Lab assay of single mutants.
Amino acid sequence: MAAGGDHGSPDSYRSPLASRYASPEMCFVFSDRYKFRTWRQLWLWLAEAEQTLGLPITDEQIQEMKSNLENIDFKMAAEEEKRLRHDVMAHVHTFGHCCPKAAGIIHLGATSCYVGDNTDLIILRNALDLLLPKLARVISRLADFAKERASLPTLGFTHFQPAQLTTVGKRCCLWIQDLCMDLQNLKRVRDDLRFRGVKGTTGTQASFLQLFEGDDHKVEQLDKMVTEKAGFKRAFIITGQTYTRKVDIEVLSVLASLGASVHKICTDIRLLANLKEMEEPFEKQQIGSSAMPYKRNPMRSERCCSLARHLMTLVMDPLQTASVQWFERTLDDSANRRICLAEAFLTADTILNTLQNISEGLVVYPKVIERRIRQELPFMATENIIMAMVKAGGSRQDCHEKIRVLSQQAASVVKQEGGDNDLIERIQVDAYFSPIHSQLDHLLDPSSFTGRASQQVQRFLEEEVYPLLKPYESVMKVKAELCL
């Protein structure tokens, strides 16, 4: 049975990233139509530049190519590739079939990587351009969430054990800070992308030097003109047959890092959902379990974690691919890159769409948070109580021993009897502590235990987050809708 299948058929496997999760716009960027249309555009740009620099290419040939950029006979191309065992030459023939007058000058002087690699770089750039505003929107939604809850005390956790208090907004800023680093890295790697350009079979530009009869300047002009037509500021000066596969490492490393950030955020949300302090959106008709109707599973956060793990592992592909590119190139890269580049971007696209949807509907339960604080705060307040007693004339050592005994009794009630923490009640009825009984409410005010959390939130948002989001103001209103 021949390899390949009808990918629109229910009898043929289709990647869930495309069929179930990723956005239509990201799927289109990695589609065959987008790819092969870009090949034709690159052939047109090459012909236009070659004509401008004096090669015998007519206006009629150029116009014929322009008129057929979208006229792609995919069936013919597939048949040609089956016959020739070469995808680029299959599309040269297919393009030439609908451009008979231009057929002889299509791909003039070029090698397969002229269309293959340059198209990949265009796709990487455009895919990054799709991700950047999506990530900015996630940051914006979380920034709104953090600002609104900047002063809401909550129990902090280290080692997932109760620690000092923080605020809900401050905790959210930990998430935002990681995503801001990801946004900066995505922008950097996007701006650092260079075009492969017009380089020939081993990167020496020998074929173009021959076409222009040894004119170095025209060869350099050709490279520059096509690079500018493709919208790049610069091209690699040095290439082998391909652009260095280190570029793929750079791009997928940034995406993998984004995956790590999203995994951490969504894990926190899942843990908070278990504590009943916070939940992701839950639709009115949504079913959490087929057997347990009360369940409210954090399905979206779980999906993000599941896909983020996949995204983090994909960076190993370009690392290994770059390491086995012998001399000017081997074909070890080809099949692998067809999979890992598309999957990385479709996965990143999915987790950003999902995280935006989550961040637009996060639900906080202040009463649950308050109750958990009441359970733990008495123990945390013991040092403040000791200091207040010393100020009232008591002995630190005597007070410490009193607190120690009462704390152990209260802990026994919590752990052995399943009761509430009654340390404060014990202190309130103990005559030894009568000098500070009137101060206990103040000493137990949760806001006095959150330090500068709310001020940190305000400063972080104003100095770091809002300036970073400013270039994306025009796209901030787009909502994230999930079908599944």
Rank of each mutant, 00 (worst) to 15 (best):
D6C: 12
G8R: 13
S12C: 11
Y13D: 00
Y13F: 08
S19E: 15
S19V: 13
R20L: 04
Y21C: 12
A22C: 06
S23Y: 14
P24L: 12
E25F: 13
M26D: 14
F28L: 03
S31C: 03
S31F: 03
S31N: 00
Y34Q: 10
F36H: 13
F36P: 14
F36L: 08
T38V: 05
Q41F: 15
Q41E: 06
L44T: 00
L44A: 13
W45R: 02
E48F: 05
T52G: 04
L53R: 06
G54S: 02
D59K: 13
D59C: 13
D59T: 03
I62S: 07
Q63T: 15
Q63S: 04
E64W: 06
E64P: 02
M65G: 01
K66V: 06
S67R: 13
E70S: 13
E70D: 15
I72G: 06
D73M: 02
A77G: 11
A78H: 06
E80F: 10
E80I: 15
E81R: 08
E81P: 08
K82A: 13
R83C: 06
R83F: 03
L84D: 03
H86G: 09
H86M: 08
V88G: 06
V88P: 03
M89S: 09
H93Y: 04
T94K: 07
T94R: 02
F95A: 04
F95I: 06
G96P: 02
G96Y: 02
H97R: 07
C99T: 13
K101H: 01
A103Y: 03
G104F: 01
I105Q: 03
H107I: 00
V115I: 07
D117T: 03
L124E: 11
K134T: 08
K134I: 07
R137I: 09
V138K: 12
S140R: 11
R141S: 11
R141A: 06
L142T: 04
A143W: 15
K147G: 02
R149Y: 01
R149N: 07
S151W: 04
P153F: 01
P153I: 00
L155E: 07
F157A: 06
H159V: 05
F160T: 00
Q161A: 02
P162D: 04
P162H: 10
Q164W: 08
T166N: 11
T166V: 15
T167A: 03
G169W: 04
K170R: 10
R171K: 12
R171I: 01
R171S: 04
C173S: 13
C173W: 09
W175R: 06
Q177T: 08
C180V: 04
M181Q: 15
L183H: 00
L183V: 08
N185Y: 01
L186V: 05
R188M: 05
R188T: 08
D192A: 14
L193T: 04
F195N: 02
F195I: 09
R196G: 09
G197E: 12
G197V: 01
G200F: 05
T201S: 03
T202E: 03
G203R: 04
T204L: 04
L209N: 04
L209K: 01
L211T: 05
L211G: 00
L211V: 04
L211H: 09
F212I: 00
E213T: 05
G214K: 06
H217L: 06
V219I: 02
E220S: 04
L222D: 01
L222N: 07
L222P: 14
D223V: 03
M225A: 04
K229N: 07
G231L: 10
G231F: 03
R234P: 01
A235Y: 07
I237S: 12
I237P: 10
I238H: 15
I238S: 00
K246W: 02
K246V: 08
V247N: 00
D248W: 14
I249L: 12
L252D: 04
V254R: 13
S257K: 05
A260Y: 09
V262W: 08
H263G: 12
C266K: 04
D268V: 14
D268Q: 11
R270P: 10
L271R: 08
K276H: 01
E279Y: 12
E283M: 14
K284Q: 10
Q285E: 08
G288T: 06
G288L: 13
A291Q: 07
Y294N: 05
K295T: 00
R296T: 12
M299G: 10
S301E: 02
E302P: 05
R303A: 05
S306D: 03
L307D: 03
H310I: 14
L311K: 07
M312H: 02
L314Q: 06
M316A: 04
D317C: 13
L319C: 10
Q320T: 00
V324I: 13
V324T: 12
E328P: 10
R329P: 06
R329N: 11
T330V: 12
D332M: 07
D332L: 12
N336P: 06
R337W: 00
R338P: 01
I339V: 01
A342F: 00
E343M: 03
A344I: 03
F345C: 12
F345M: 08
L346Q: 00
A348S: 12
D349E: 14
T350Y: 06
L352V: 12
L352Y: 07
L355E: 00
I358G: 04
I358P: 08
E360V: 00
V363M: 02
Y365H: 10
P366K: 01
K367S: 12
I373P: 10
Q375G: 07
Q375S: 11
Q375L: 08
Q375A: 15
F379G: 11
F379Q: 03
M380R: 11
T382P: 04
T382C: 12
E383N: 15
I385A: 12
M389V: 03
M389Q: 11
V390N: 08
K391Q: 08
G393S: 02
G394S: 05
G394F: 01
S395C: 06
S395G: 07
R396C: 03
R396E: 15
Q397R: 09
C399A: 09
I403E: 01
I403T: 04
Q408T: 13
Q408R: 09
Q409M: 03
A411Q: 05
A411D: 12
S412E: 07
V413W: 13
V414C: 15
Q416A: 14
D420A: 08
D420V: 15
N421E: 05
D422I: 11
I424L: 09
I424M: 12
R426P: 06
R426L: 15
Y432R: 12
P435R: 04
L440Y: 12
L444T: 00
L444Y: 10
D445G: 03
D445W: 00
R452Y: 04
A453D: 10
A453Q: 07
S454G: 10
Q456A: 14
F460M: 00
E462M: 12
E463S: 08
V465S: 04
Y466L: 03
L468D: 03
V475D: 01
M476F: 07
K477Q: 12
K477E: 10
V478R: 15
E481T: 13
E481K: 02
C483M: 14
L484G: 09
